[in-house]
Amino acid sequence: MNIFRLVGDLSHLLAILLLLWKIWKTRSCAGVSGKSQIMFGLVYITRYLDLFTNFISIYNTTMKAIFIAVAIATIYLIYFKFKATYDSNHDTFRMEFLIVPVGGLAFLVNHDFTALEILWTFSIYLESVAILPQLFMISKTGEAETITSHYLFALGSYRALYIVNWVYRYYFEGFFDLIAIVAGCVQTILYCDFFYLYVTKVMHGKKLSLPA
């Protein structure tokens, strides 16, 4: 464990708790893409299947359990409890356009052709594009609530910090996982224009609004 990965994990945890809190407090999931949340749920379930089979550390197990629980709770709030506030007209990104190619790629490009490894690879690839429906929804509505932009900033920062973690681990531990690194770079690049808008607008107290 290194500081970059720890801060990254905490940023990730902050992001998902921020989103859950926003929906619960405002009793509304307006501006939130349910499709992205479903895909994140899929990411955690397929990646943390080893939650009960191999124990790595208390921290690892606890975080995995929290990520899965919060993802399921968020999906529940969006599609059941506050379903009336779910903006399905703007959350129109076709998930199958992401899940099918990612599933195929996981079969073709992986470290080990075993079920667990292919599911882990699928999870890594899916996570890199899971935010697209959310970014697409913001581009359609033309704006995002400030709390939602904080959620996106924390979520985007987590994988950016993981990239620094991988550089650190490469130089100090000689460890690197090309699949995770390439997917992590793609994932972070997708946030770039959002990061630019966040820094230039939200940081100056303005509302995040895309140029119409």
Binding site: D9, H12, D50, N54, I56, S57, L116, E117
Partner: peptide, 10 residues
Amino acid sequence: KDYIKDKDEL
């Protein structure tokens, strides 16, 4: 590959 070691990241 030592599966467990490599998969210590979240």
